[in-house]
Design a protein around this nucleic acid. Structure first.
Length: 949
RNA sequence: GCCCAGAUGGUGGAAUUGGUAGACACGAGGGACUUAAAAUCCCUUGACCAUUGCGGUCGUACGGGUUCGAGUCCCGUUCCGGGCACCA
C-alpha cells in the first residue's frame, strides 16, 4: 500500500508541534539581519473570515517563511484593530455590549487563522482596545497636543518652544503651521488671560480643539473624517452625512502635507496608490494676490494657479461662507445676498456635489485688478469653496470652464488671452499656447507689465515673479489635504486623556495613563450627538490625587470633568507596527533598542481601500514620532503590496414564472424565468445538488426540475462575496476537505496577489492532486520512505535547479501564481525520472515549505531531521546544472519559423548558420533566393532574411 | 473633466522583457481499469482548411507605425476597472 497523504493528521500534528517548539517566536537578534513583514490587522467583525481574507496573509506568510529560510530574523506579527465603528456597529446590530462581541469575534478569528498554518508570532499580539495598548495611543495624542509644527525646520517641536518665542517676539517672524493667521505682539501675548492663551495655542498645536465644519452623520451618531465619507454618504452603512459646525479634536495633518508628498518618492508602493495619495494631498502651486475694493479701504486675497490670466479677469467670486461676504455686500444688494445665502444653506453637501447648476448673486462691490486697474464686480457663488485657498477667486471666463459657465449665465465679458483659442462655445482651459491681450492693445498695465508672446507656462512664472517682487501678492502652495477630525461621539474607542479646567483642556499626566474606558449601561450613540460617555458616573478628574472620581464631585477647583468624546478607529491603527516591536513594554511605546533593531516595516500587505485613510494617517503619525525620535525611519512602510479582493462566484437557479419548477441553464430560453441566487455550497462545478436544494429551504421541498442530460446546470455571475448572494465560501470548509496546504496553494494559484479575482472552487482539485503527487515522490509503493543516498542524476539536478531558479525569482517579486506551475512541472519530471535521491528530495521539501508548511514539515521529518523545516537553509542555485550541452534553436526564414535544429552549446554563429543553410529542410526556402541578412540570437533563434535572386 | 492601471482560448492565467503565443491548471470531449461508482491513468481541446500520412492559413481589443522578427516598443481609437473632482 502506498502511503496516504493524510493532511488532517499532518496539519494537526504540526500545529501542536509548532506551539511546543515556539517555532514562530522571534527575539531581537543583532547577529542576523532583520526583516519585518506586516499584514494590515483585521477588524474582528462578526461574520468571521471568508476565503478572501487570508489571501494577503498567505502571500505575506510565504514571503516571511522564505526570508527566514534565507537567513533573516523575521518579525511577522498579528493583532486586532478592535476599536472603532465596525466593531461597534456589529455590537449595536446584535444588541450586545461591544466588549463582549469583540472578544468573541477575536476568538473566532484566531481559531480560523490557526487552521491555515501562519507563522505569526502570537506572543506579540496587540489589541487596540486593550488598555496596555491604548495607553500609548493616548500618550501619542498628548505628545501631539504638546507640540507644534515649525515650518522653517519642517518638523514638530515642543509647544514650550513656541510659548517662549511668543513671549519674546509675539507672532513676528513666526513660521509655524497654523489654523489661521494671527498677529499679536509679545506684550499682547503676556497680557492674555489663561483662557485666551489656551485658545491661541490651539491655533498651533498638532492635536487641537477646533470649531470646524464637520461631516456629521446623524444615523451613526458621530462625526466622520473626510475619507470615511464617500459621495456624501457614510462609508459604513451608506447613511446621509451633513455639514455641521462643531467643536472637535483635530490633528494638524495638513502641516505634514509636503513631507507626506515628498516621502512617496522614497517608498516602494504601487503607482496607483501613490497617485491616489498624491491626488488626496492635492498640492497646487500658485499665487495669492491682494485685491483692493473700489471705494473702500477693504481688501481681500484671492488664490490662483493661473497667474498668467490676470489680464482676463472680468469678475471676482467669494464663497458664500466667506467672512468677506458681510463686509463687501452693499446696502442695495443686501436683500438679494441674504436670499441667496438662505438658498445655499438649504442645500445639502450631496446636492451641491451632484447638481452644478450655475447660481450666484452680485455683492454690489467692485474689486480692482492690481495689474490692469480694471474694476470688476464681486459676486458670491456656491461654486467657490470656503475651505480651499482663500475662499475667494479671480474669475477668468475665457480659460476656466466654471468661470465661463458663470459668465455666460450672468452675461459677463469674456476676454481670450491665448492666440487661436476659440472661446465662443467653451473656455480654453489647456495650459498651452502663446499669450496675447496681456495687456490688450491700447491699454496700459501696472509698470508696463506684459506677457504677450510668452508661452502660457512662461507667463505663469513671469506673473508670479512680478506679483511677489512688486508686493501685489506672493507665491503660495496650497494643499487639498485637510486636518483630520479626531473625535467621535461614540462609546467604543479610546478615551481622550483630557479634562477641562474652567473650560481649558488639560492633559492627564503621562504617568497616569492609560485612562481606561469606563463601563456604561447604555453605550448607544444618539442622533443629537450627546456622547455615550456622558452616561459614565465615575468620570471626573481629581487633579490633586491624580485619579478618576465620581462626577458628582466636580467642583471646578480640584475636580474637573473629563472629555466625553472618544478617538476614531484610525487612532489605534496608526502606530501599531511600532508596538509589535515591543508589545509588553510598560515604560515606552517601544524601547530605543527594539526600535533601532526593527526600524520600520519592510513589507506591508493589505487592501488598497486604505489608500486615503489608514495609509495617510499612519504615515503622518509615524512622521510625528520620527520627529520625536521614537520611530527610526521617516516612512513606516517601505514596500506595500495591495492584495486584490476575492469576489464571489454566485450561482443561480431559474424558476419558471408562477411555478415551483426550475429549469436548467441550457433550456431556460424556452420559458419565462426568474433567476434566484442559490447557495454555492450545494453546487459543484455548476451542477446543482438537487436533493440538497430541496432541503435548503422549506419552500423548495416540493420543487420540480427540468434537467438537461440528467443534470441541473446553474447559471453564474461574479459578484461581491456576501451573505445575501449566498456565495460566501468559508476557509474552514476548504481546510477540512482538502487541507490548509491545498487552500494556501490554491489561493496563490488563483492569480497574481494584487489582482481581484472571483473565487472559483472548480480549480481546487488540481492543486490538491498536485500535493498528492508531490507527497508520492517521497514514498515507495510499500509506504516506506523512498529517499536514499543514491547520487542524483544530471537530469534530477537540472529539474531541481530549474525549480530553485524559478521559485526564488518569483517569491522575490510576489509572483507566487507562476511558481506553482513550476512546482507541478518539476514534480512530474522527478516522478518520471523515478528520483529517490535525498540530495534532491531534501531541498525540494525546503522549496515548498513557504507555500505548504505542513507537508514540508512532515516530509522533512520523514527524511530524518529533528528540527523544524523553518530553520532549514534555502537551497542554493547552481547554474552549472542548467547549462545545456545542446541547444535547440528554431530556424526562421524572413521571420517565420520553418523548422528547428539542435546544435552543440558552444557552436559558433558561423557554424550554426552554415548548418542551417545546408539542412535538407532549408532547401525549399533557399531555392532561387539569396540570403541578404543573417540574425543569430544565441540560444533563442536563427533568422535568415532571403529575397529572390 | 483630470490622473492611474489594464484588455491574450470556454475559464484563471503563462510567455526567459523584442525571438517557436497559449506553459500549468480548471472546464469540456473521448478512452483504459472496474459488475458499478469513486479514485487513478492515457489521448484531444485557439479558430479555420486539409486529413490514410506528413501539413497550411489566420490569430494576443481595434487601426496604423518601427523592426529581419511585435502580445511585448511608438502613435491614434474603443472598451473595462480604480482614484480625484465646482480644489480656482
Amino acid at each position: 500500500m502506498a502511503k496516504e497523504y493524510n493532511f488532517q493528521e499532518i496539519e494537526k500534528k504540526w500545529h501542536e508541534q509548532w506551539t511546543k517548539w515556539h517555532t514562530y517566536e522571534v527575539g531581537e537578534d543583532a547577529s542576523r539581519p532583520k526583516y519585518y513583514v506586516l499584514n494590515m490587522f483585521p477588524y474582528p467583525s462578526g461574520a468571521g473570515l471568508h476565503v478572501g481574507h487570508p489571501l494577503g496573509y498567505i502571500a505575506s506568510d510565504i514571503y516571511a517563511r522564505y526570508k527566514r529560510l534565507t537567513g533573516f530574523n523575521v518579525l511577522n506579527p498579528m493583532g486586532y484593530d478592535s476599536y472603532g465603528l465596525p466593531a461597534e456597529q456589529y455590537a449595536i446590530q446584535t444588541g450586545q455590549h461591544p466588549e463582549k462581541t469583540t472578544y468573541a469575534n477575536i476568538d473566532r478569528y484566531r481559531e480560523q487563522l490557526d487552521k491555515i498554518g501562519f507563522c505569526f508570532d502570537w506572543s506579540r499580539e496587540v489589541r487596540t482596545c486593550d488598555p496596555g495598548y491604548y495607553k500609548w495611543t493616548q500618550w501619542a495624542f498628548a505628545k501631539m497636543f504638546n507640540s507644534f509644527f515649525c515650518k522653517d525646520c519642517q518638523k514638530a517641536k515642543p509647544i514650550e518652544t513656541l510659548i517662549k518665542y511668543l513671549e519674546e517676539n509675539g507672532t513676528l517672524g513666526l513660521n509655524a503651521a497654523q489654523g489661521k493667521e494671527l498677529n499679536f505682539t509679545a506684550e499682547e501675548w503676556k497680557a492674555m488671560s489663561e483662557q485666551e492663551k489656551s485658545q491661541t495655542l490651539m491655533n498651533y498645536r498638532i492635536a487641537f480643539l477646533g470649531e470646524t465644519m464637520v461631516n456629521w452623520c446623524p444615523k451613526l451618531g458621530t462625526v466622520l473624517a473626510n475619507d470615511e465619507v464617500i459621495d456624501g454618504v457614510s462609508e459604513r452603512g451608506g447613511y446621509p452625512v451633513e455639514q455641521k459646525k462643531m467643536r472637535q479634536w483635530c490633528l494638524r495633518v495638513s502641516a505634514y502635507a509636503q513631507r507626506l508628498l515628498d516621502g512617496l518618492q522614497t517608498i516602494d508602493w504601487s503607482d496607483s496608490i501613490k497617485e491616489t495619495q498624491k491626488n488626496w494631498i492635492g498640492r497646487s502651486e500658485g499665487a495669492e494676490v491682494q485685491i483692493k475694493v473700489d471705494g473702500s479701504d477693504a481688501d481681500f486675497t484671492i488664490f490662483t494657479t493661473r497667474a498668467d490670466t490676470m489680464f482676463g479677469v472680468t469678475f471676482f467670486v467669494l464663497a458664500p461662507e466667506s467672512e468677506l461676504v458681510a463686509k463687501l455686500t452693499t446696502e442695495e444688494q443686501k436683500a438679494a445676498v441674504d436670499e441667496y445665502l438662505t438658498y445655499v444653506k438649504s442645500r445639502t453637501e450631496r446636492e451641491r456635489m451632484i447638481d452644478h447648476t450655475v447660481t450666484g448673486v452680485f455683492s454690489g462691490s467692485y474689486g480692482i485688478n492690481p495689474i490692469t486697474g480694471d474694476k470688476c464686480p464681486i459676486y458670491i457663488a456656491e461654486y467657490v469653496l470656503s475651505g480651499y485657498g482663500t475662499g475667494a477667486i479671480m474669475a477668468v471666463p475665457a480659460h476656466d470652464s466654471r468661470d465661463y459657465a458663470f459668465a455666460r449665465h450672468f452675461d459677463l465679458p469674456i476676454i481670450p488671452l491665448v492666440e487661436g483659442a476659440d472661446v465662443s462655445e467653451e473656455s480654453y482651459d489647456a495650459k498651452e499656447g502663446t499669450v496675447m491681450n496681456s495687456p490688450m492693445e491700447g491699454k496700459s498695465s501696472y509698470k508696463g507689465f506684459t506677457l504677450n508672446g510668452l508661452s502660457v507656462k512662461e507667463a505663469i512664472e513671469a506673473t508670479k515673479k512680478f506679483v511677489s517682487e512688486n508686493g501685489l501678492g506672493r507665491v503660495k502652495v496650497n494643499f487639498r489635504l485637510r486636518d483630520a477630525i479626531f473625535s467621535r461621539q461614540r462609546y467604543w474607542g479610546e478615551p481622550f486623556p483630557v479634562y477641562y479646567k474652567q473650560g481649558i483642556p488639560c492633559m492627564i499626566p503621562e504617568e497616569c495613563l492609560p485612562l481606561e474606558l469606563p463601563q456604561v449601561e447604555n453605550f448607544l450613540p444618539t442622533e443629537s450627538g450627546e456622547p455615550p460617555l456622558g452616561n459614565a458616573q465615575i468620570w471626573a478628574w481629581d487633579e490633586t490625587n491624580r485619579k478618576i472620581v465620581d462626577k458628582a464631585l466636580i467642583d471646578e477647583k480640584t475636580i474637573f470633568p473629563i472629555e466625553l468624546f472618544t478617538m476614531p478607529g484610525f487612532a489605534g491603527s496608526s502606530a501599531y507596527y511600532l508596538r509589535y516591536m515591543d508589545p509588553a513594554n510598560d515604560n515606552a511605546l517601544v524601547s530605543e533598542n527594539n526600535s533601532a533593531y526593527w526600524q520600520n516595516v519592510d513589507l506591508y500587505v493589505g487592501g488598497s481601500e486604505h489608500a486615503t485613510g489608514h495609509l495617510i494617517y499612519s504615515r503622518f503619525w509615524n512622521k510625528f514620532l520620527f520627529d520625536l525620535g521614537i520611530s527610526k525611519k521617516e516612512e513606516p512602510f517601505q514596500k506595500l503590496i495591495n492584495q486584490g479582493m476575492i469576489q464571489g462566484r454566485s450561482n443561480f437557479v431559474y424558476r419558471v414564472k408562477d411555478t415551483n419548477t426550475f429549469v436548467s441553464l441550457g433550456l431556460k430560453g424556452q420559458y419565462e424565468t426568474t433567476p434566484i441566487h442559490v447557495d454555492v455550497n450545494i453546487v459543484k462545478n455548476d451542477v446543482l445538488d438537487v436533493d440538497a436544494f430541496k432541503a435548503w429551504r422549506p419552500e423548495y421541498e416540493t420543487a420540480e426540475f427540468i434537467l438537461e442530460d440528467g443534470k441541473y446546470i446553474c447559471g453564474w455571475a461574479v459578484e461581491k462575496m456576501s451573505k445575501s448572494m449566498f456565495n460566501v465560501v468559508n476557509p474552514d470548509m476548504i481546510v477540512e476537505k482538502y487541507g490548509a496546504d491545498t487552500l494556501r496553494l490554491y489561493e496563490m494559484f488563483l492569480g497574481p496577489v494584487e489582482q481581484s479575482k472571483p473565487w472559483d472552487t472548480n480549480g481546487i482539485d488540481g492543486c490538491h492532486r498536485f500535493l498528492k503527487k508531490f507527497w508520492a515522490l517521497y514514498w515507495d509503493k510499500d509506504g516506506q520512505l523512498a529517499a536514499n543516498d543514491s547520487e542524483p542524476t544530471a537530469e534530477n539536478l537540472k529539474s531541481l535547479h530549474k525549480l530553485i531558479k524559478k521559485v526564488t525569482a518569483d517569491i522575490e517579486v510576489f509572483s507566487y501564481n507562476t511558481s506553482i506551475p513550476a512546482f507541478m512541472v518539476a514534480t512530474t519530471e522527478l516522478g518520471q525520472q523515478k528520483c529517490t535521491s535525498r540530495a534532491i528530495l531534501e531541498p525540494l521539501a525546503v522549496l515548498i515549505a513557504p507555500f505548504c508548511p505542513h507537508i514540508a514539515e512532515e516530509l522533512w521529518e520523514a527524511l530524518g531531521n529533528t528540527t523544524s523545516v523553518c530553520d532549514a537553509q534555502w537551497p542554493e542555485l547552481n547554474e552549472e546544472f542548467l547549462v545545456e550541452d545542446k541547444v535547440k534553436m528554431p530556424i526562421q526564414f524572413n521571420g517565420k519559423v520553418r523548422f528547428t535544429m539542435e546544435f552543440p552549446a558552444d557552436a559558433t554563429k558561423e557554424s550554426m548558420i552554415e548548418a542551417a543553410m545546408n539542412a535538407p529542410e532549408a532547401a525549399k526556402f533557399l531555392k532561387g533566393m539569396q540570403v541578404v541578412k543573417q540574425i543569430v540570437v544565441p540560444g533563442r533563434i536563427i533568422n535568415l532574411v532571403v529575397k529572390p535572386e
